[in-house]
């Protein structure tokens, strides 16, 4: 499992590092989240990893997600996101927002999220069992 040491990351994580990071993440993520990635060139800003998520705000934002993503984890065709590690969700939402990962609904939903909102959502969903 890849470990993150945020203090080592400069303001922007280098593409090379992130290629490695995302390659690992992608293997992990694609098992749960079908849908192709059309680029492995991720330029994830370090500041997004350093944000603290506001879970209350995340809960409000998450009501939008729950139209499709069921709380009990069932649901064919749409993955369970409840209880997923925060870093997975941040990476995924970022990849959808930047249109690196393909799915029109998710690109649209993530497209209006700020870094703070992505982290708030990730913090909220991570805390669900």
């Amino acid at each position: 499992m890849l470990k993150y040491n945020h203090k080592l990351l400069s303001e922007r994580v280098t593409v090379r590092m992130l290629k490695h990071l995302f390659a690992v993440q992608t293997v992990i993520l694609l098992g749960f989240f079908p849908g192709s990635v059309h680029s492995d060139e991720i330029d994830l800003p370090a500041e997004i990893l350093n944000l603290d998520g506001d879970r209350e705000y995340g809960e409000y934002l998450a009501s939008d997600c729950k139209t499709c993503h069921e709380a009990d984890g069932t649901g064919d065709g749409i993955p369970n996101i409840h209880g997923r590690p925060r870093i997975q969700l941040i990476t995924l939402l970022y990849a959808y927002r930047e249109k690196i990962k393909l799915n029109e609904v998710m690109q649209m939903q993530a497209g209006r999220l700020s870094n703070e909102e992505i982290v708030a959502l990730a913090a909220y969903f991570e805390g669900l069992n």
């Binding site: 139209t67 069921e70 709380a71 749409i78």
Partner: peptide, 17 residues
């Protein structure tokens, strides 16, 4: 096909919601 499968997941999600 994936879009159709997504719609099935949505139906299940929204009715649970």
């Amino acid at each position: 096909k994936a879009t159709y499968e997504e719609s099935i997941g949505w139906y299940s999600g929204i009715t649970a919601d």
